[in-house]
């Protein structure tokens, strides 16, 4: 690997991993996804205009690879309804390496896993990466209209999934 690309990986790899984690819901899978995206970017580097183009290209590959993986690998993620809130022993290890400790009263994080990959990707790019609809469309290889549709449907689904929990908290 050449020095310039190595510097890019060192500088931006972590940021890519954060986005990939939000897409996949799992840090290890996210790293895997980022490595694949970086490897493809590296193969393509001579055709990119300069080093500043590495990151947009890597992000585009990241998203398309995520969608492609979701098609190729038959994930066993199935909605399993409500999981009972079992009390955890005081000194027990967190089940997911501490990530479960993040307060998420909204229920949005588990709800995100129930969205289609396209909806999830659009919402992550829009509300975490702060990309414009045009940029998201370019990353996903679809039209801005399709981005709007995925975003609207994703938000609507999140609203439906989380609504009962919200209502339960009301006095």
């Amino acid at each position: 690997m050449d020095e310039e690309f190595g510097r890019f990986v060192a500088a931006r790899g972590r940021s890519l991993c954060r986005a990939a984690y939000l897409l996949t819901g799992d840090w290890q899978s996210g790293e895997d996804l980022v490595q694949e995206a970086l490897a493809r970017t590296y193969q393509r580097r001579n055709r990119l205009r300069d080093a500043s183009a590495f990151e947009p290209y890597a992000r585009k590959v990241l998203v398309t690879q995520f969608l492609s993986w979701r098609r190729r690998h038959w994930h066993g993620e199935l909605p399993h309804g409500a999981v009972a809130d079992l009390p955890r022993p005081p000194n027990a290890e967190p089940a997911d390496g501490g990530l479960g400790e993040v307060e998420d009263r909204s229920g949005l994080w588990p709800a995100l896993r129930e969205l289609s990959p396209q909806q999830r990707a659009v919402l992550v790019l829009r509300y975490y990466e702060d990309l414009t609809e045009a940029d998201i469309a370019a990353a996903l290889g679809c039209s801005p209209g399709a981005v709007k549709t995925h975003a609207a449907r994703g938000l609507e689904r999140l609203r439906r999934i989380t609504a009962p929990r919200t209502e339960e908290r009301r006095p």
């Binding site: 954060r18 939000l22 993040v102 509300y127």
Partner: peptide
Amino acid sequence: ALRGTLQARADAAD
């Protein structure tokens, strides 16, 4: 809320 959740999750996993 979604923006906040995504940021918090990414920070926690980082």
